[in-house]
Design a protein around this nucleic acid. Structure first.
Lengths: 164, 164
DNA sequence: TTGAAACAATACTTTTTTGTACGGATTTTA
DNA sequence: TAAAATCCGTACAAAAAAGTATTGTTTCAA
């Protein structure tokens, strides 16, 4: 379980836009300069973010990129999904199975699937509730928010237990 | 953030061994058969698990693999780490930076690093406290344990807040 | 003692990911 | 209107991951 390059660098570029004054844009060369990446590589991320409609663009000289919504209205999950192109996480593996068998071997009782599901469920919730606005605040301020997310997650799991 | 093939399939093979009666071994062909994977591929996983000393082997005809410890004494983190060969997670990215800059551009205030750190911290805790024994129990029984892990995690984060 | 079945290890092929290059379209500005 | 700077898009190259093949070593059992 690891972070892809697209996720890492794409998110950084998005954060650059988030820290921009309202109405301003930032060009690919500018972003590349600030993040120490190549212009071409940055352009690749931005195209993905644009296609996901998270970013708007201004063409021509003096053009550039800006977020299409307020930083606080864009979850990190949206950004990461845009960059990842919908990746198989957790139990999605069961479908994209590489083995010879027609489907996953474990039908009745599979405890690996729910394990990945629970883990990726937490990750999804975490990234859904964190926004770009959270990432342009000083480091210390993040902990409060993450703490409350984890706390809620426990509550939800307890509810699920009761229902089942 | 996604699960690698080695993690997924390697873990499945480990679970096969975990569900084995004490003292028994399972051969690579057997495991391959049960999981619908090629024998060669299974051998690759098992070699990694053996090198991490999570698995002991018996050579020769009638040989095979078995866990070197009790399933309850082997955390999923150990298994996943053995399969992953120590992967850069979260803020490790700062070191293995691909950009032109000598180091990560963000020195003073970086809120992306602590974001990944918090997320991967939870993942680590989750996988550290789940064991192979947990994965050979029926699906439903897992929730109790995961719930308490998440609960503890919140507690730890709150403590960290207090200390800082 | 010899053959079969298993682990051990490495090398190889294929696929995916990562990162670059380049030609075309758009808009500003001189 | 023409040059310059930008976005747009695809094609390409390099590296890593995924998966296969092969050869060697060990052990059991006939």
């Amino acid at each position: 379980m690891n972070v892809t390059a697209l996720e890492e660098y794409g998110l950084r570029c998005a954060v650059q836009l988030a820290s921009l004054p309202e109405g301003k844009t930032l060009s690919a060369p500018d972003i590349a300069e600030r993040e120490g990446l190549s212009i071409e590589y940055v352009s690749k991320f931005m195209l993905l973010l644009k296609r996901a409609e998270l970013v708007r663009t201004v063409r021509g000289i003096k053009g550039g990129f800006a977020l299409s919504r307020q930083p606080a209205e864009i979850s990190l999950k949206e950004v990461l999904d845009a960059l990842n192109g919908r990746k198989k996480a957790g139990s999605e593996f069961c479908k994209s199975f590489t083995g010879k068998s027609e489907a996953c071997v474990r039908f009745g009782s599979c405890s690996i699937r729910p394990f990945w599901d629970l883990l990726s469920g937490y990750v999804e919730e975490f990234t859904s509730r964190m926004t770009l606005a959270d990432l342009i605040r000083p480091e210390e301020e993040i902990r409060d928010k993450t703490s409350s997310i984890a706390s809620d997650h426990v509550g939800q799991m307890r509810n699920r237990e009761l229902r089942s």
